[in-house]
């Protein structure tokens, strides 16, 4: 499976194929960057979900709640640090946005632990109940967000240094998209190093393949799962923070909306595969932006079409994880 490069070619393939369709190379470059930024933000949100599924066969339909909470926590922290955000200094801006994102991760991760214990643990192995209960968790979480932050949408001011675009020749490059790409790639790199170079990562990969055998070697896979669930929730919070700043507004339903894209991505990638999730996220982000430009009315339908095509080609997703 490690030697399967065909899916890797899809991303450059779709980028190249879009050039003649879009026509102008300036728009194409802008759209490509926008697609990569969107894809990487979705990847950040989706990576934990696909791993928790691979490890314990648990799919959290309430994952969107952590995305939303991340966005709201960031909004609150940024509101508190507003003077730094408005300052005309990149460093002060980062000093505000950094803690905001870390706070989003901490709160989402902490809530993830509670969610795992209260909502998910009692229904391990029962898929029907799992879907129902985690959906119920999403309902309650959305309502609690409205209790804490009020029912109306909150606006979120982007820091000065990340506003606007700079020109590279004729091509306008939006600064925040670069920021999102950098963070997304950093998360991908950190996950890759963890999964491939550390003992915990080995355990996770082995557990995704065969949890029973990992237990027979003397490791407690539940403990591992709780950790992965918390990290996945924290990443969802980070992704929600990035998405919220990108949209510049947050509403309680932001999580449920983005969660649909997240689900499409992990289906495309192959449930349980981080690499597949990465490629799937980029494909979804790019397709959404190209199609959004070419035929705006069917932009979200295009993702469904993309999913259908990929499932016809590989029914288990791009990188099917062994045994599942």
């Amino acid at each position: 499976m490690k030697r399967d490069f065909i899916p890797l070619l899809l991303v450059p393939g779709i980028i190249i194929a879009a050039l003649p369709l879009v026509g102008s190379s300036e728009s194409w470059a802008t759209l490509t960057l926008a697609g990569l930024a969107m894809g990487l933000m979705i990847f950040v949100m989706a990576s934990g979900l696909t791993l928790t599924f691979g490890l314990m066969d648990v799919l959290n339909f309430g994952h969107g709640a952590f995305i939303a909470i991340g966005a709201f926590v960031t909004a609150s922290v940024m509101a508190g640090l507003a003077p730094w955000l408005k300052a005309d200094s990149l460093w002060l801006n980062l000093a505000a946005i950094g803690p905001a994102m870390l706070a989003a991760m901490a709160v989402s991760g902490g809530l993830g632990l509670a969610f795992e214990r209260a909502i998910v643990r009692p229904v391990y192995g029962q898929h029907l109940k799992q879907i129902l209960v985690t959906t119920g968790g999403l309902i309650v979480a959305e309502q609690l967000i409205k209790v804490v932050w009020g029912p109306d949408q909150i606006t979120l001011a982007r820091p000065t240094a990340l506003r606007g675009a700079f020109l590279l020749g004729e091509i306008a490059i939006e600064k925040y998209r670069i920021f999102a790409v950098v963070i997304g790639l950093a998360v991908f790199a950190a996950l890759s190093v963890t999964l491939n170079r550390t003992r915990i990562g080995l355990l996770i990969r082995a557990g995704v393949e065969n949890g029973e055998m990992v237990e027979a070697l003397g490791y407690r896979i539940r403990r591992l799962f709780v950790g992965v669930f918390a990290v996945g929730s924290a990443l969802a919070g980070l992704g929600g923070a990035m998405w919220g700043i990108y949209q510049e507004t947050v509403t309680a339903t932001i999580g449920a909306q983005v969660a649909v894209l997240v689900f499409i991505v992990i289906i495309i990638g192959g449930l349980g595969s981080v690499g597949g999730c990465f490629i799937g996220a980029l494909l979804v982000g790019l397709t959404a932006n190209y199609v959004g430009f070419l035929a705006p009315k069917v932009a979200l339908g295009s993702n469904i079409l993309l999913m259908a095509i990929i499932l016809l080609w590989r029914p288990q997703g791009l990188y099917p994880v062994a045994r599942r």
């Binding site: 499976m1 393949e209 065969n210």
Partner: peptide, 19 residues
């Protein structure tokens, strides 16, 4: 186990390191 249950995605070295 009878099914061997080696971790196919991990290298030989990684299988033994885990064990």
């Amino acid at each position: 186990p009878e099914s061997m249950a080696i971790f196919a995605d991990l290298t030989v070295r990684e299988n033994l390191v885990l064990a």
